[in-house]
Simulated assay, not measured.
Amino acid sequence: MAIHTPKTREDLARLLDPMRLEATPFEHAVAVGAAEKRTVSPAAPKSGPEYTRWMRTVEALHEGLMLLRRGWRRDDPDNLPYFSHPQLRLGLVASSGGKFTGVAWGNPSTKNDKGVAFARRVDLNGQVALFDQPTGDGGSFVVDDLWILLYNERDGMVYLELSHPMSMTGKKIDTWSERIIFPPFDLALGAFSFEEIDDEDEGDVGFTVTRR
């Protein structure tokens, strides 16, 4: 498994650019999601805060990706909010993650059980689904690579990563071929906490390879 830990905004940009992505939509999405979670009172259903976070995270991510105008589109197959880049054959979904989300020394998983819509896109043989993905206009396109945005809030930070799934254990996705770990999002500062590095180190990207 390849694990990328970019130290600077420029390092992160170099990892995201081949996917026609930028850091800003993710930064904005986790900020909005965290803020909206806090608007839910204790009188709401128990699932209310996290459901509200997920809903607003998806909404803000949608707005950010569309504003990029870099070929990303949005569909909702099986009622799953699904972003895709038909030209690059990429797919992207957002999900809350477990306690090891956003750290290189642990193996993350999706926090909650996933249903049929997720399972159809990650098969149990360790291969990302290569079949046609339906679109809202009645068409379809092929997705070769599905990526999942995982996020988890703890200790005043939102930890997040963009990771490429391999397989599911039960109803949770917990095996990955590649992980791009974002710097933690500092809720007090409202921004990613990139490291301060010396000029001579500028441009270095952390990279870890672990056994599957």
Rank of each mutant, 00 (worst) to 15 (best):
R74K: 12
G97S: 07
G138P: 11
Y159V: 05
D144Q: 12
S163L: 00
S84P: 03
S167W: 00
T135F: 05
K99P: 15
I148Q: 04
S95H: 02
D137I: 04
S95Q: 06
R89C: 08
Q87R: 13
R70V: 04
Q127I: 02
R70L: 14
G97L: 12
T169N: 09
A129C: 15
M166S: 09
M157Q: 11
P86I: 08
L92I: 07
N152P: 04
P165H: 01
S163V: 01
A117P: 00
L150N: 03
V143F: 01
N152Y: 15
Y82Q: 10
P86L: 07
G138Y: 05
G71I: 02
S109Q: 12
R120S: 11
L146P: 00
F100Q: 13
R89H: 08
D123L: 12
N79Y: 14
S167N: 10
R120W: 09
A94L: 14
P165D: 04
M166F: 02
K171L: 04
W105R: 15
V142L: 13
G91L: 05
D155F: 13
M157D: 04
P81I: 11
V143G: 00
D155H: 14
G156S: 10
S167G: 09
T110R: 04
Y159N: 04
V142D: 01
G136V: 02
F131N: 14
G138D: 07
A129V: 09
A94F: 11
D144I: 00
S95L: 06
G71F: 00
L80F: 04
A117M: 08
M157T: 05
L124W: 13
P165L: 04
E153L: 05
L68K: 11
R89V: 09
K114G: 00
W147M: 07
G170Y: 04
